[in-house]
């Protein structure tokens, strides 16, 4: 495949990377797994002058757990590592599940979660779960960093809140309260290697009574230009008792807030209809997890 020539750099330390990226931010692109980037370059949709390969930066790899801060996943961690991590399975099982459903094994060993969110496709696998967890992003740049809730990261179709010279350094998923759970549901035409027609991440937290919704987050994919939360519905659901009215309000609400289009994967009509089904199933799963945890305790 012939594509426009580009330079290639592979820094070996974070400092080297940050200064290189700061100097060339305008015509450089970060190359993580390349599973999105190289596709765009080959299709001639993008012609960066410089690719900075971050796969050798050990500072950007790894998963750790801290009871107060929660789960930290460094930006360059491979999707396959997230899929297999016992820490992720324990503290964010829905993320492990979403990771396991991204592409193929080969793709998962190349791809990173930072690449997944920075590509900012509305159909991407991990953003719904990260939004459901209300994850915090640590954003780096030469000589500093800032944090940003992921709910403010996706601006529009394939556009993120990263400023020139900034990069995603780490993901921080706060510890889940007791009586809270996250679930992920998706729908593709086939069972694997699929860009989802629809997906949803749901967070459900119950009050101490185990009956009343204390908090809920519903993050929908493939129903708009970015993955986003059904904020109005979330508000309405707070304080409702678990029961048919709650599910009906949740399903009805997401359909109201979804703004899907027709494309090659599915029609808007289909998406509108099935987003409610997935929402119900995801919330039911959250309930099940909470229930199972309670009976185990």
């Amino acid at each position: 495949m012939h594509c426009e020539p580009f330079e290639y750099e592979k820094p070996v330390s974070l400092r080297e990377f940050e200064s290189l990226y700061a100097a060339r931010a305008d015509d450089a692109r970060i190359l993580a797994g390349g599973t999105d980037l190289m596709v765009l370059i080959k299709e001639k949709l993008l012609a960066p002058r410089l690719l900075i390969d971050i796969s050798d930066l050990h500072e950007l790899r790894g998963i750790s757990w801290d009871p107060r801060q929660g789960l930290t996943i460094m930006a360059g961690t491979k999707i396959a590592e997230i899929e297999r991590s016992t820490l992720v399975k324990e503290h964010a099982p829905a993320l492990a599940y979403a990771a396991a459903n991204l592409g193929s094994n080969q793709v998962r060993w190349m791809a990173t979660m930072a690449g997944n969110i920075c590509h900012a496709s509305p159909a991407a696998e991990t953003p719904p779960v990260l939004l459901a967890h209300d994850c915090e992003l640590i954003i780096g740049r030469q000589g500093g960093e800032r944090t940003l809730p992921i709910s403010r990261f996706f601006l529009s179709y394939r556009k993120t809140a990263l400023e020139s010279g900034e990069y995603v350094k780490a993901f921080r998923l706060p510890p889940l309260p007791a009586r809270a759970a996250v679930a992920y549901r998706f729908k593709g035409l086939r069972r694997a290697m699929e860009i989802d027609m629809l997906n949803i991440g749901a967070y459900l937290e119950l009050c101490e009574d185990g009956q009343t919704v204390s908090d809920v987050r519903l993050a929908m994919g493939s129903v708009g230009p970015t993955t986003y939360r059904a904020a109005v519905t979330e508000k309405k659901l707070k304080g409702m008792p678990i029961g048919e009215d709650f599910f009906a309000a949740a399903c009805g609400g997401v359909v109201q807030e979804a703004t899907p289009i027709d494309d090659v994967r599915a029609s808007a009509e289909y998406r509108n209809r099935v987003i409610g089904v997935l929402t119900r199933r995801a919330l039911e799963e959250c309930l099940e997890i909470i229930g199972a945890r309670r009976s185990a305790a």
Binding site: L189, R190, R191, A192, M193, E194, I195, V264
Partner: peptide
């Protein structure tokens, strides 16, 4: 899938879906 101008709309294994091992 074929566009009005006769162009194939999904001539890749990304968009033309054959069963996978999972199916």
């Amino acid at each position: 899938k074929v566009g009005k101008d006769g162009r194939l709309l999904n001539p890749s294994l990304h968009d033309y879906k054959i069963p996978t091992a999972a199916d």
